[in-house]
Design a protein around this nucleic acid. Structure first.
Lengths: 107, 107
DNA sequence: TTTAGTTATTCGGATATCCGAATATCCATA
DNA sequence: TATGGATATTCGGATATCCGAATAACTAAA
């Protein structure tokens, strides 16, 4: 993947968007923006079972959106690139504008 | 949907990301950023059957990311909010940074 | 009102994603 | 090396998404 073609880049781009396309994963990224956290702390914050969080984290990890570091028995997750939350914030602003303009948006 | 809860907002947010999570739809948004275009023009540019483009456009339309205007027999699509491409560009930059750092990213 | 051109929808099967539950793996400590 | 806590993975069925093909719906012009 030294020089991805425009087509490959679009595919990777879409895969990142797909990784963001889940409410739990969005919350995970915002939580990790506050501070690095280990898995069970994230599971507590999201109030979902630990295996579910681990699967979501694996998806973010495969896309290289988060990184991991071992701390004894814990695995601490961090954002690979803090600017991902800026992207999420921009999208949220667009969403607010859309909601202001019209209300018949698919839930 | 006057005052969406944080949870609802996350869901809408994820739905927008999901709408972006397809290479064809990303290309559609970039094409519409260049200029408003009608359906068959978009189909030609993407080299996919017209019904496929219409279905992708419907997904973007349901999320209010694009708007339509009739011009005789044609239906002209436009970006509802031009800043969506800024978001896509930011994501693309993050993607480039990721690719620069490591190569084992899921295709 | 017929015809031709443009766009939207439906149907079907293949594929992908989701989650709960169970379990495997890894690590530190005793 | 045995134990317990933390994390990752696998399996299964339900659900969602994808695309090609066929067709329906709409528009303008004859």
């Amino acid at each position: 993947m030294a020089m991805p073609s425009a087509e490959e880049l679009n595919l990777l781009h879409a895969n990142i968007c797909k990784a963001l396309g889940d409410p739990k994963r969005i919350q995970l990224l915002y939580l990790l923006h506050e501070e690095p956290r280990h898995v069970s702390a994230l599971a507590d914050h999201l109030d979902v079972p630990q295996p579910t969080v681990s699967r979501h984290l694996a998806i973010l990890r495969e896309r290289a959106l988060v990184t991991t570091e071992r701390d004894g028995a814990l695995v601490v997750y961090s954002l690979a690139d803090q600017s991902i939350v800026a992207v999420l914030d921009s999208m949220r602003q667009i969403l607010r504008d859309i909601l202001d303009r019209q209300a018949d948006v698919i839930l």
